[in-house]
């Protein structure tokens, strides 16, 4: 395997510490992931003051929760409303808000998603099972710079009185990319 050969060569040259690679993998496999973004969304649903601050300066607000770092140095949160649905893509590579969502899934990095969602977002969303009403405009955010975007999905009906933890459980990764909606509680 080519990766193993490269790792071995760089380790022999004293340039890579295999334990550091283990540490990097552990962080992205076990510590950083969509649960971070879900907590941000749930807090925004539960607390209008937090939400207003989040929409005004997300980088600072999510950093207060400990979510900052590589591939998430400049964060913008965009809010879904009855009038507008937001979708995130990076057509040129695969930019994604790592500190909030972790490593992007395969479909986000796929040629099909990158090529199509800017041109036919409604057709792509339909493949994800999301059909938007005619009256709701779609805004696709193509992440061409170091700004990283997170969608604030609409809060589902029937969630009044839920705790932040209960609300966070309704927030899927896809809802925060805009290819899904928040889960409606049964």
């Amino acid at each position: 395997m080519r990766v193993k050969a490269l790792e071995t060569l760089l380790t022999e040259k004293g340039l890579v510490d295999p334990a550091a690679l283990d540490a990097i993998i552990d962080i992205y496999q076990n510590q950083v992931g969509p649960q971070n973004g879900a907590l941000v969304v749930a807090k925004a649903w539960a607390d209008p003051v937090f939400k207003a601050r989040l929409l005004a300066d997300a980088t600072e607000v999510v950093a207060e929760l400990g979510f900052y770092g590589r591939q998430g140095e400049h964060i913008t949160v965009v809010e879904n409303t009855l009038e507008r649905h937001n979708v995130i893509v990076c057509t040129l590579c695969s930019c994604y808000p790592w500190p909030l969502l972790g490593i992007p899934p395969g479909w986000y990095k796929s040629d099909a998603y990158r090529a199509r969602v800017v041109r036919e977002p409604r057709a792509v969303l339909a493949e994800f099972g999301v059909v938007l009403p005619e009256g709701q405009a779609v805004r696709v955010w193509d992440s061409t710079a170091e700004m990283r975007y997170l969608v604030l999905p609409m809060r589902p009906e029937g969630t009044e009185g839920m705790s932040v933890e209960e609300l966070a459980a309704l927030v899927t990764r896809d809802a925060m990319v805009g290819t899904g909606l928040a889960t409606v509680p049964q």
């Binding site: 993998i25 992205y28 040129l92 395969g106 479909w107 796929s110 099909a112 090529a115 800017v118 792509v124």
Partner: peptide, 21 residues
Amino acid sequence: HDMGGRWGDGPVLVDPNEPVF
């Protein structure tokens, strides 16, 4: 790499049980 808008890529294939790596 500059593929935004390109035709011909087919459906977006999603693996719902995809692990991080």
